[in-house]
Amino acid sequence: MDTQAILMDYIKKELMKGRNVDISPSDDLLGSGIIDSLGILQLVSFIEERFNFQVPDEDVVFENFFSVEALTNYLKNAQAAA
């Protein structure tokens, strides 16, 4: 699976457990209620373990975590720069 598919899979299976809502990679994760602030914390923990990449505190911002698409781009760029 590529990064986007891994993130979509985690969000659907772990963070949206029990909720039958379709999401697309461009959906606003927080604004549309797909996940909440605790979900963001879980997502950061998941990324750090699954991709073996420490997300710097200052990178946990709207621009990088707005959607799965934004997060995928952020991870691609951040990992390339690391």
Partner: peptide
């Protein structure tokens, strides 16, 4: 302190 919008992460940290 920190970038705009980073407040929640500062708080959690």
């Amino acid at each position: 302190l920190g970038p705009e919008g980073a407040g929640s992460n500062i708080f959690n940290d």
